[in-house]
Nucleic acid binder design. Structure first.
Lengths: 212, 212
DNA sequence: ACTTTCACCGAATCAGGATTCGGTGAATCT
DNA sequence: AGATTCACCGAATCCTGATTCGGTGAAAGT
C-alpha cells in the first residue's frame, strides 16, 4: 500500500534530496558557489558522490533549484508593492519599505544570492546576460525613479544609472558583509541605507554648501 | 658592446612581455579574468603558449604585475589628498574630488579592476582576505567619515557600514557598466554619484517629509 | 518467496586549462 | 668561426573537479 505514512522509499529519497539542498545552501553561504565542490556537498550531506546525480543532473541545476526558492521568496515579499504610480520614494517610510523587502530577501537567501552574484561576476563584465538580470532586479527601482522624474522631481542623475548604483550597492554589500562574524543587524542596515539613499551624507537638514 | 641602441635580444623580450600585458589587459577588460585562458592571451599577443612562462611564472603573477600598475595609478592620483582632518566630505567640491580620483583610477584601469573584483568575488564571501583589501580601499573614506562624526556631524549610520556601502557601489558599478556599448561619460557619472552620495534621492533642498 | 526497481555507493572517466618540457635557431659572447 | 645562451615554440603533462558507470541491497510489486 503506497502511502501508509509516506512510502519509505520515496521518503528516504526526499530526505536525501533535502539533505543535499541543505548542505549546498550552507556551503554556498559559507564559501560561495565557486568554492564548493560536489564532493563537499555530498560529504556534508553524508552521502556518496554519485548520489548527487540521482537528484540533480548538474551543479547548475542545483543552483536553479535554489534559485526557484529565491524567486518564490521575492514574489512573496514584493507582491503588491509594484505600482510606482502610487509610491513616493522620497517619503522615508515608503523608501525604507522598498529597501527592506529586497534586502530581507537577499539576507534570508544569502547562499543563493551569493551563488547568483558569483556566477554573474564570473561571466563577461558589463554586457553579459547576467547583468540584464540585475537591470531587471533594479527595474522596479528605476520605474519609481522615472515616475519621480516625470513628476518634476530632480534626481541626482539618469534614472537608470542611479538605479544601477543603488542595486549594485545592495547586491555587493550583501556579499561583502560577513555571515558568521558579527553580522550587523538587518534593521540597522536598512535604516542606514534608507538614510544614506534618501539624504546622503549631508543628512536631512543640510542645505547647499557655501564657503567658510 | 651591450647597449648600443638597446640590445636586440632584450628588446625583443621586452616587446613580447609588453605584448602579453597588452593582450591580458584587453582580454581581462572584455571577458574578465576568469574567462581569459593563457592561450587566449598568447594567441592575442601572437606568441606560442609556452612563451607566456618565459615572462610570468603564473597567471596570478601576471595579475599581480597589472595590479602593481594599478597601485601606482592610485598613488599618483590619491597622493596628497590623504589627510581627513583637512577635508570636509559634506562640501560638494571636495566630495566630488574624492570620488573622481578613485573612479578615474577604476575606469582607466578597468581590466585590472575587473580582474581584481572577480578574484575577490571568487574567494570566500565576507571574511576572505580579499575583502580586507576592499576595506583598505575604503579606508580613506571611512577615516573621513569618522572625522565628520567626531566633529559632531550626524552620519546615516556606522561609518564602516557607510564606507562599505559606498565602496561597494563604486566597485560594482564599474564592473556593471559596459565598456564597449555606450560607456557613460565619466564626469557625468561622477557628478551623479556625488549628488547621490551627498544628498541622496531627496536632493539638496529637501526637508523631512510630511503628509501630502 | 521471487522478481524488479532504484537510491545509494565510490571508484573510474572526462574535460578544461594551467603548467612543463624537449627541441630550435638566432643573438651574444670568446 | 665556434660555443653558448635564451626567447620562443607547441605538443605533452598534470591537476582539479564535474560527471559517469557498474555494482549492491533493501523496498516495492507480483
Amino acid at each position: 500500500m503506497p502511502q501508509e505514512r509516506a512510502a519509505t522509499r520515496k521518503a528516504k529519497a526526499a530526505e536525501t534530496r533535502a539533505a543535499l539542498l541543505d548542505a549546498a545552501r550552507r556551503l554556498f553561504g559559507e564559501r560561495g558557489y565557486l568554492n564548493t565542490k560536489i564532493t563537499d556537498i555530498t560529504a556534508t550531506a553524508g552521502r556518496a558522490t554519485g548520489s548527487f546525480y540521482e537528484h540533480f543532473t548538474s551543479k547548475e541545476e542545483l543552483l536553479k533549484a535554489l534559485l526557484a526558492e529565491l524567486e518564490d521568496a521575492v514574489d512573496a515579499r514584493v507582491a503588491g508593492m509594484e505600482h510606482p504610480r502610487e509610491h513616493d520614494l522620497t517619503n522615508r517610510d515608503q523608501l525604507r519599505d522598498h529597501l527592506a523587502a529586497p534586502w530581507a530577501v537577499l539576507r534570508d537567501n544569502r547562499p543563493v544570492a551569493i551563488a547568483v552574484f558569483q556566477s554573474m561576476v564570473a561571466d563577461d563584465p558589463g554586457s553579459g546576460r547576467a547583468w540584464r538580470d540585475l537591470r531587471e532586479q533594479t527595474h522596479t527601482i528605476r520605474e519609481h525613479l522615472e515616475y519621480l522624474a516625470e513628476r518634476g522631481h530632480r534626481l541626482p542623475g539618469d534614472p537608470e544609472l542611479v538605479a544601477a548604483a543603488i542595486g549594485a550597492m545592495l547586491l555587493t554589500l550583501n556579499y561583502a558583509l560577513p555571515s558568521t562574524a558579527d553580522p550587523p543587524d538587518n534593521d540597522q542596515v536598512v535604516e542606514t541605507l534608507t538614510d544614506l539613499i534618501l539624504h546622503g551624507l549631508a543628512g536631512p537638514t543640510a542645505r547647499p554648501q557655501d564657503e567658510g
